[in-house]
Amino acid sequence: MNYFTEAIAWILDPANAEGSGGVWARSAEHLWYTLLAVLLASVIAIPLGYLVGHTGRGRGLVVASTGAARALPTLGVVTLVGLILGIGLVAPLVALVLLAVPSVLAGAYAGIEAIDPRTIDAARAMGMSDWQLLTRVEIPLGLPLLLGGVRSATLQVVATATLAAYVGAGGLGRFLFLGLKTQDYPQMLASALLVVLIALILEALFEIAERVTARRLHVV
């Protein structure tokens, strides 16, 4: 347990907090990688998920891709892309986007899939076009499940973004690998605690967002 107090002391030590390699800067980097990866994954996966959910075609593809992605070791992807494209941010970003896409895709697709068919029929009977059906019925009703998908993607990415430092990028993983090299336990632990802290904060934000959307949907 002594390591814990040392790790917390390490985090609170002003010498470690400031500067481009400090706790604040690395935390910001970590958050930035996470948001960028989830954003890129959403840009790819949400339209695709809506397309599959709306048309009902390509369902097997979604299920198969989420299954295969689970088996794909992220560390392998990070090192593979790192070797091909060189060290830096691109390699971990590619791996993190790959990691995030299946969850977001499943969320977007399942959100539409889970809507009561009678609701869709009623919307069509009211004369809605495909576009109106998608934007006014399917997307709003699918929002809670989509948020759930983005939430689990974000959690996975925030945890895995520590690997970015392995191929020369920044983020909180820097402290972990630095500590690993020098057998500096408090520093490794400090890095882990900071990542968990960021994960918990993001979880809380998603919890609030989910409650707000749920309440909105009940009112409408």
Partner: peptide, 18 residues
């Protein structure tokens, strides 16, 4: 759910201390 939120690499490092 919270357990799953703990990043794996740090957990491998933290567990031995516990």
């Amino acid at each position: 759910g919270l357990l799953y939120a703990i990043p794996s690499l740090p957990l491998f490092v933290v567990l031995p201390t516990i």
